[in-house]
Deep mutational scan, measured.
Amino acid sequence: VTVHVNRYTYHFDNPEEAEKFAREMAKRLNMTVEIHGNTLKVE
């Protein structure tokens, strides 16, 4: 599972951890999480 935050890319083996990380980053940056299959984008 890949998480994109701005120009950074993070890889996770565990989808739940990836989503938790993405949501935490989105909250911190006041952004939203978009899910595209195995890719989560924080925008």
Rank of each mutant, 00 (worst) to 15 (best):
residue 1 V to P: 03
residue 1 V to M: 11
residue 1 V to N: 04
residue 1 V to Q: 03
residue 1 V to L: 07
residue 1 V to G: 03
residue 2 T to R: 06
residue 2 T to V: 12
residue 2 T to I: 12
residue 2 T to Q: 08
residue 2 T to G: 02
residue 2 T to N: 06
residue 2 T to M: 08
residue 2 T to F: 11
residue 2 T to A: 06
residue 3 V to Q: 01
residue 3 V to R: 01
residue 3 V to K: 01
residue 3 V to S: 01
residue 3 V to A: 02
residue 4 H to D: 03
residue 4 H to W: 07
residue 4 H to S: 09
residue 4 H to M: 13
residue 5 V to K: 02
residue 5 V to S: 02
residue 5 V to L: 08
residue 5 V to P: 02
residue 5 V to W: 07
residue 6 N to V: 07
residue 6 N to W: 13
residue 6 N to C: 15
residue 6 N to D: 11
residue 6 N to A: 09
residue 7 R to N: 13
residue 7 R to K: 13
residue 7 R to V: 06
residue 7 R to S: 13
residue 7 R to M: 11
residue 8 Y to N: 11
residue 8 Y to A: 11
residue 8 Y to L: 13
residue 8 Y to W: 12
residue 8 Y to V: 13
residue 8 Y to H: 13
residue 8 Y to K: 14
residue 9 T to W: 08
residue 9 T to F: 09
residue 9 T to L: 11
residue 9 T to H: 09
residue 9 T to D: 03
residue 9 T to Q: 10
residue 9 T to K: 10
residue 10 Y to A: 01
residue 10 Y to L: 04
residue 10 Y to K: 03
residue 10 Y to R: 03
residue 10 Y to M: 03
residue 10 Y to Q: 02
residue 11 H to Y: 14
residue 11 H to G: 02
residue 11 H to A: 05
residue 11 H to S: 06
residue 11 H to F: 13
residue 11 H to K: 06
residue 11 H to N: 06
residue 12 F to G: 00
residue 12 F to M: 01
residue 12 F to Q: 00
residue 12 F to W: 02
residue 12 F to R: 00
residue 12 F to L: 01
residue 12 F to K: 00
residue 12 F to C: 05
residue 12 F to D: 00
residue 13 D to E: 11
residue 13 D to W: 09
residue 13 D to K: 09
residue 13 D to V: 08
residue 13 D to R: 06
residue 14 N to F: 07
residue 14 N to I: 07
residue 14 N to Q: 06
residue 14 N to V: 07
residue 14 N to M: 06
residue 14 N to P: 00
residue 15 P to W: 15
residue 15 P to M: 15
residue 15 P to E: 08
residue 15 P to N: 08
residue 15 P to Y: 15
residue 15 P to L: 15
residue 16 E to T: 10
residue 16 E to S: 10
residue 16 E to N: 08
residue 16 E to W: 12
residue 16 E to V: 12
residue 17 E to H: 07
residue 17 E to Q: 09
residue 17 E to V: 08
residue 17 E to C: 13
residue 17 E to P: 02
residue 17 E to K: 08
residue 17 E to I: 08
residue 17 E to D: 12
residue 17 E to M: 08
residue 18 A to R: 00
residue 18 A to K: 00
residue 18 A to G: 10
residue 18 A to C: 02
residue 18 A to M: 01
residue 18 A to W: 02
residue 18 A to L: 02
residue 18 A to Y: 01
residue 18 A to P: 00
residue 18 A to E: 00
residue 19 E to H: 13
residue 19 E to F: 15
residue 19 E to N: 07
residue 19 E to D: 07
residue 19 E to P: 00
residue 19 E to S: 07
residue 19 E to L: 15
residue 20 K to E: 11
residue 20 K to D: 08
residue 20 K to I: 12
residue 20 K to V: 11
residue 20 K to G: 05
residue 21 F to I: 01
residue 21 F to L: 01
residue 21 F to E: 00
residue 21 F to M: 02
residue 21 F to W: 07
residue 21 F to D: 00
residue 21 F to R: 00
residue 22 A to Q: 01
residue 22 A to M: 03
residue 22 A to W: 02
residue 22 A to C: 05
residue 22 A to H: 01
residue 22 A to V: 03
residue 23 R to M: 09
residue 23 R to A: 08
residue 23 R to K: 09
residue 23 R to L: 09
residue 23 R to S: 06
residue 23 R to Q: 09
residue 24 E to D: 10
residue 24 E to Y: 14
residue 24 E to T: 09
residue 24 E to F: 12
residue 24 E to N: 09
residue 24 E to R: 12
residue 24 E to V: 08
residue 24 E to G: 07
residue 24 E to M: 14
residue 25 M to E: 06
residue 25 M to K: 02
residue 25 M to N: 02
residue 25 M to I: 14
residue 26 A to D: 01
residue 26 A to C: 07
residue 26 A to H: 02
residue 26 A to F: 02
residue 26 A to L: 03
residue 26 A to W: 02
residue 26 A to E: 03
residue 26 A to I: 02
residue 27 K to Y: 09
residue 27 K to N: 11
residue 27 K to Q: 12
residue 28 R to F: 08
residue 28 R to A: 10
residue 28 R to M: 12
residue 28 R to V: 08
residue 28 R to G: 04
residue 28 R to Y: 08
residue 28 R to I: 11
residue 28 R to S: 06
residue 29 L to P: 05
residue 29 L to K: 03
residue 29 L to D: 03
residue 29 L to Y: 13
residue 29 L to S: 03
residue 29 L to I: 03
residue 29 L to W: 08
residue 29 L to M: 07
residue 30 N to V: 03
residue 30 N to H: 11
residue 30 N to S: 07
residue 30 N to G: 14
residue 30 N to K: 06
residue 30 N to L: 04
residue 30 N to R: 05
residue 31 M to P: 01
residue 31 M to A: 14
residue 31 M to G: 15
residue 31 M to W: 05
residue 31 M to C: 13
residue 32 T to I: 14
residue 32 T to D: 05
residue 32 T to N: 08
residue 32 T to R: 13
residue 32 T to Y: 08
residue 32 T to E: 06
residue 33 V to S: 02
residue 33 V to N: 01
residue 33 V to Y: 05
residue 33 V to F: 05
residue 33 V to L: 08
residue 33 V to E: 01
residue 34 E to A: 14
residue 34 E to P: 01
residue 34 E to T: 15
residue 34 E to R: 15
residue 35 I to K: 13
residue 35 I to H: 09
residue 35 I to M: 09
residue 35 I to R: 14
residue 35 I to Q: 09
residue 36 H to V: 12
residue 36 H to R: 11
residue 36 H to C: 14
residue 36 H to L: 11
residue 36 H to I: 13
residue 36 H to T: 10
residue 36 H to W: 10
residue 37 G to D: 07
residue 37 G to P: 05
residue 37 G to S: 04
residue 37 G to A: 05
residue 38 N to V: 04
residue 38 N to Q: 06
residue 38 N to L: 07
residue 38 N to E: 05
residue 38 N to H: 07
residue 39 T to G: 07
residue 39 T to R: 08
residue 39 T to A: 09
residue 39 T to E: 10
residue 39 T to H: 12
residue 39 T to Y: 10
residue 39 T to N: 10
residue 39 T to M: 12
residue 39 T to K: 08
residue 39 T to S: 11
residue 40 L to P: 04
residue 40 L to N: 04
residue 40 L to C: 06
residue 40 L to I: 15
residue 40 L to M: 12
residue 40 L to D: 04
residue 40 L to F: 10
residue 41 K to S: 12
residue 41 K to Y: 15
residue 41 K to F: 15
residue 41 K to E: 06
residue 41 K to I: 15
residue 41 K to P: 04
residue 41 K to A: 07
residue 41 K to T: 14
residue 41 K to G: 05
residue 42 V to S: 04
residue 42 V to G: 05
residue 42 V to K: 03
residue 42 V to F: 03
residue 42 V to L: 14
residue 43 E to A: 14
residue 43 E to F: 15
residue 43 E to S: 14
residue 43 E to V: 15
